[in-house]
Design a protein around this nucleic acid. Structure first.
Lengths: 340, 340
DNA sequence: TTGTATGCGTTATCAA
DNA sequence: TTGATAACGCATACAA
């Protein structure tokens, strides 16, 4: 079957392409009768406008691009769901890319999205991203850009994120109030701001509560903060400190789950021997045994908010309204469960 | 910053647009010197072709569409990862949509994708999809279409899926060989083929092993086969049959995890009192306690294969080679763990 | 080796 | 109320 064009409808009805176009767009200056005929024929032929022609003409694609580090991640797939929902309601399409935490891929993908002429871009930075020229380029070309979750504070664009430092501070403070004193931290990569901020929050909470900060109690998750990082670091922790540790605050739930596994294998009781506090509230954390105390990040809302802002900025651009960038901090909340 | 076009380069160099175009595409009929000048200027101006103009002209968009029922699902997000990987390597973009298991949305999204002129479409059907006109339309318009996982056998297009019936048959047979006799099944919705096939495999395994099929042992998961379905059905099961059940085969891991929770709350031991066999091998299943015996579906491979086939068909269409639809069955495997 | 002309399918301006 | 014409940016058959 062939795609129907305005021209074909025009020929069939012996009228001009212009008139057909106007009729279909409900322009006032076309007679009721012709409009009727056009509409009917268009419907019966199942006419759909050619999106490329429209985009070329209108310089608008009704498409946005989204780059996340990893789709197989409860947090990101939930964010994506929020984005898709907002896009759907506006008849926008979403081009999804994943950077695999690699700077070179992220850069290439930005270029691809720009060459595709998307109306706006949503990005959560890769851990590997330390230079921002590629994103600055997006801004320079005046394409609306919103960063979420893994952001760079230096870029002049809207951002949606959580207060990692505060969330971590609150979590560790809670542990301290509960009486834990030797609190370890399994932290994430050195680079991303989230990881740094959670570490700083941890440290600050200790200091503010008169507990000395012991760098020996901080372990790096080099493996992208996954299950194995938790398992292996748990092993190191026990080797290094034996029972001289009573709680662990982890960069993310998955790491805590690795710890639980190691502890289970070695008969270490949670929370009696060592308590755990995770981060992100993966679904899994509510069903694992023991259930995991953690921080809810409201991923879906992050997705919704970021795309709302993006669509607002796209709208502003169309109407030539000046854009005011936003900094939205989505409040987190602590979810108390069995592990601490 | 403004987007650069061929025309601007042409003006700058005082040559024609045609020559610029040819130079950039390495046509042989352009002098080395002009090519050189064009290439340099293009580079310094950071020229990128306008994708819409190219698509309009070439009737090719280098974009494919993907529709899944739900992005926040370990299986689907892993499939998506496989698709993105294949697309990435071909410089293709992926437009992602989610149907939320709703027929009307799926239909609308197909229309959107078609009007967008994507080069091909990958779909995993919603549970709600019982009519296939919208997909037939894709086929009629000669747009490559590949169904994966949740497929319809009646449509004339390529398909990638697993043998649900065999997988279920093998799982239940395994339970029987282990000595379990009163095996319940928590099944999925009535509609999707997967759900039906797993049920049929379950039934067949019983019959082939001389165990009478007892419809009273089959429970429906109405809530889209989630955690609550497992939890609530476990409750019903115990109310209905007390200890006269020794194993449960579930439509998916998440349901089994709901069961584990209920059993934990009510002191029912897995696998001693009741054994469990899940389906899909969610990551969670390897870390829950007890770890869950299940069926690995190789989601990533399903994503890879489906997109490979789709890209092959797109290629065939371009080269006018006749397309031969494929039916790929990705082998499953049983993962034995503590729950049975 | 280069350039002219044409068309892809729309939309917008302006004249009839 | 209608339609001829141009333009969006690019690619190509064909002429120079």
């Amino acid at each position: 079957m062939k795609t129907v064009t305005l021209k074909q409808i025009a020929n069939e009805l012996n009228i001009s392409v212009t008139t057909v176009s106007k009729a279909l767009k409900n322009y006032p200056d076309v007679s009721k009768k012709t409009r009727q005929r056009v509409l009917e024929l268009a419907k019966s032929l199942d006419y759909t406008p050619n999106a490329y022609a429209v985009s070329l003409r209108m310089k608008q694609s009704k498409t946005i691009g989204v780059i996340v580090p990893d789709t197989v991640h409860h947090f990101f797939s939930t964010v994506i769901k929020g984005i898709l929902k907002e896009a759907e309601s506006r008849d926008y399409m979403v081009i999804l890319m994943q950077s695999n935490e690699r700077f070179d891929l992220e850069k290439k993908q930005i270029d691809l999205l720009m060459s595709k002429g998307v109306d706006g871009i949503l990005v959560s930075l890769s851990n590997d991203t330390k230079k921002f020229d590629h994103l600055q380029k997006v801004i320079d070309y005046n394409i609306p850009l919103v960063l979420f979750d893994k952001i760079s504070k230096t870029l002049k664009c809207s951002k949606v994120y959580i207060d990692d430092r505060k969330a971590a501070y609150d979590a560790v403070t809670y542990l301290i109030k509960k009486g834990f004193k030797r609190i370890a931290h399994f932290r994430g990569d050195l680079n991303p701001q989230n990881s740094i901020d959670r570490f700083l929050g941890y440290k600050q909470a200790l200091l503010d509560n008169g507990i000395p900060f012991d760098p020996e109690l901080v372990y790096m998750c080099n493996n992208n903060a996954d299950f194995d990082d938790g398992y292996n670091n748990a092993k190191k922790l026990i080797t290094d400190h034996g029972s001289n540790v009573d709680a662990i605050f982890t960069i993310t739930d998955l790491v805590a789950i690795g710890i639980i596994k190691y502890f289970k294998d070695h008969d270490i009781k949670v929370p009696d021997d060592i308590a755990l506090f995770g981060f992100s509230n993966w679904f899994m954390s509510s069903v694992i045994c023991p259930t995991l105390t953690t921080v809810e990040q409201h991923a879906f809302e992050i997705g919704e908010q970021s795309s709302k802002i993006l669509f607002d900025e796209i709208q502003c651009k169309l109407t030539k309204t000046p854009i005011k960038h936003k900094n939205i901090i989505i409040p987190t909340e602590m979810i108390f469960r069995e592990s601490s």
